[in-house]
Simulated scan of single mutants.
Amino acid sequence: MKKEFSSLLLAFVLMLGFTPVFAAGNTQTVKDLQDAFTGESTAHAKYAAFAKKAKEEGYAKIALLFEAASRAEKIHAGNHQAALKQLGADVPVVNPEFDVKGTRDNLKDAIAGESYEVATMYPNFLKDASKEKVNIAMMSFNYAFQTEKKHKELYENALNSLDNNQVNSMPSLYQVCLVCGNTYAGQGPARCGICMTPNEKFVTLKL
Rank of each mutant, 00 (worst) to 15 (best):
M1V: 08
K2D: 13
K2Y: 11
E4R: 06
S6R: 14
L8H: 08
L10W: 04
L10Q: 15
L14Y: 11
G17W: 10
T19R: 09
T19Q: 07
P20Y: 03
F22W: 04
A23W: 06
G25K: 03
N26R: 14
T29M: 00
V30N: 01
A36Q: 05
T38F: 01
E40D: 06
S41K: 11
A43D: 14
A43W: 13
A45R: 14
A49S: 12
A49C: 10
F50Y: 15
A51H: 12
K55T: 13
E56D: 13
E56I: 06
E57Q: 13
Y59N: 15
A60E: 14
K61D: 08
I62Q: 06
L64S: 07
A68L: 09
A69I: 14
S70E: 04
K74I: 03
G78Q: 06
A82L: 09
Q86H: 12
L87T: 02
A89H: 03
A89N: 00
D90H: 05
V91E: 00
V93Y: 03
V94M: 04
P96W: 06
F98E: 02
V100C: 10
N106H: 06
L107W: 03
E117D: 13
M121L: 12
Y122M: 01
Y122T: 03
P123K: 01
F125E: 12
L126C: 00
S130G: 10
E132C: 00
K133H: 07
N135H: 11
I136Y: 01
A137C: 04
M139L: 14
S140F: 03
F141K: 02
N142R: 10
Q146D: 05
T147E: 06
H151L: 02
H151A: 04
E153W: 03
E153R: 08
L154D: 15
E156T: 15
N160Y: 11
D163C: 10
M170A: 09
P171D: 15
P171Q: 11
L173W: 06
Y174W: 09
Q175S: 09
C180S: 07
T183N: 08
Y184V: 03
G186L: 03
Q187R: 15
G188Y: 12
P189W: 12
A190L: 13
A190H: 11
R191T: 15
R191P: 01
C192N: 04
I194K: 01
I194H: 00
P198I: 01
V203I: 14
L205W: 00
K206M: 08
